[in-house]
Design a protein around this nucleic acid. Sequence first.
RNA 1: GGCGCUGUAGCUCAGUUGGUUAGAGCGCCGCCCUGUCACGGCGGAGGUCAUGGGUUCGAGCCCCACCAGCGUCGCCA
Length: 592
Amino acid sequence: MITRFSCGALRASDAGAAVELNGWVNRRRDHGGLIFVDLRDRDGVTQIVFDPTHVSFKDAEHLRNEDVLRITGTVRKRPAGTENSTLATGEIEVGIDSLEILNRSQVPPFQINVDADVDVDLRLEYRYLDLRRPRMQNNIILRHKIVKTMRDFFDERGFVEIETPMLIKSTPEGARDYLVPSRLYPGEFYALPQSPQLLKQICMIAGFGKYMQIARCMRDEDQRADRQPEFTQLDVEMSFTNQEDVIETMESCIRRVWKNVLGVDLAPFPRLTYDDAMNKYGIDKPDLRFGLELAQVNDIFAGTDFVVFKSVIDTEGAIVALRYPGGASLSRRDFDALTEEAKTAGARGMVWVALGADGVKSSAQKFINDDHVAKLRSATQSETGDAILLFADARAHALAVAGKMRNAVGERCGLRDPKQFSFCWVLDFPYLEVDDETGKAYPAHHPFTSPGEGQWQYLHTDPLKMRAQHYDMVLNGYELGSGSIRIHKPEEQRAIFEMLGMTPQQIQDQFGFFVKALEYGAPPHGGMALGIDRIVMLAAGENHLRDVIAFPKNQSARDVMMDAPSAVPEQLLRDLYLKSTAPPPPDQAAGR
RNA sequence: GGCGCUGUAGCUCAGUUGGUUAGAGCGCCGCCCUGUCACGGCGGAGGUCAUGGGUUCGAGCCCCACCAGCGUCGCCA
């Protein structure tokens, strides 16, 4: 009897078995009188041996990479000395009995059988070939395992997965919506969900108690390496809960994922407040794989004659110091380049102090005395051989720039090991942020978040002081996701909307359905959403979401393989009561 | 929309100060080869140097414009 195996399954103990294998030609080694073909599928590679006396030998001579084969043969141990320890199947080979060429392949535009860099555009155009490469197959399979572990985890804890619709109502604020025109209602549009936020809250009002969903979300914003126009969230919501409960649940889920999928035992996630994060790391998503905490050193320079520092101190800005381990060996040229980098990050300038073994040098030599140096060393915990970088500006700005440079220094010093996973929670976010340009306050996250205990008192007196029951999970400097305890009382929800400047009529038009739902016995509830793409990316050690999404868009939000978006027939537009105001494309290929 | 980087053979890249016929590795095609596994040997094909202008006796190289890709800022309640 012939049994079908995958190309990664056979071992020495299978010797003598009659087997069928299906797969792609990974490589052919033709010795003239003997041909080896490595047959590949997602599971691995198995060596097939064609003997010149066999009828299939002639066909085997003409096999090319990526041809699709079905073979039958007999498993045998390789002759002593010819085993390949780098292959899981390296102790055996399959002697050919029959060869069926199921399909031929064109010469691929890039090689599938070597893990080399290939132009991204080409990879996306031939995504089926790109995905055939072992690295991509492993990433996609890793993704499956992570998502499966998440589903199992929440299932065990009594959560129900509920699908929410893709065609929903467009609501203001947030990211730009992807719109879908309605054929039945001329001039009206659905929006694709930016997240199922209100729907999952309504599931709580509906009494499901514990909800989860692997949810697709769409946001029509510009792309980044860690941002795609459509992405997937692990979306969770719980009734009769509190912040501690949600945090425990999500952290346990992630701990299970890392244990099951990567075999890694994660320590409990450290927690820090938003204020701590901003003061120590200059950012609300700190990379905790390394220390290098920022220090605010205004006091050290009290009474300085250095106008840059003096004016910042006088205007209640901040001088922020950052340690650069080993930075004393940098040349002036290096420091100039670093200064340029800081300017790109938004700095007005940068002062460096190099703590060389042969003395201290600085770009502000005249204004830095021994006392300053001693205090700076202590404040930044620097040692001889390090450098200290100083940024002076309005406080928030100086911290933000120093935070970006902290990551840059961490990168330069090799402190950002992709195999190290430093999670943390960031808590106690401000409820509101102020727009730098307009001076207008807007919610730091979303307006369904409940202010923390005792925070309502600031609603009318000092709203900027309000803290939210909001929490972020952060890994290696990436925000994995946010959650909050929600408002569940209709009058509180209206109060928040009104604080944000909405009129009763606007509240009714945009969120009327939701406030109404709150009036019918909404339970206290809260939850969280985690970005699955980012989780998989970091777990896989990749730097780009496109390496963990089967069919991603490019940076210009195009699907290069399908060539979407694309023009549609005029009639289709008429059916939807649409007329484009875009100038007509010069030819069919235009519009790119 | 701003800024930066990149664009040379199918792929990954090199290409000196602007100077003769633009190179390498892999891949591809042909021949040889019975224990390879990145098999090996011999031979061969393959280029609008992204595109359009300009400077120059002469441009892959310098200048301008433009397209594309990537990164980043804005944006992402």
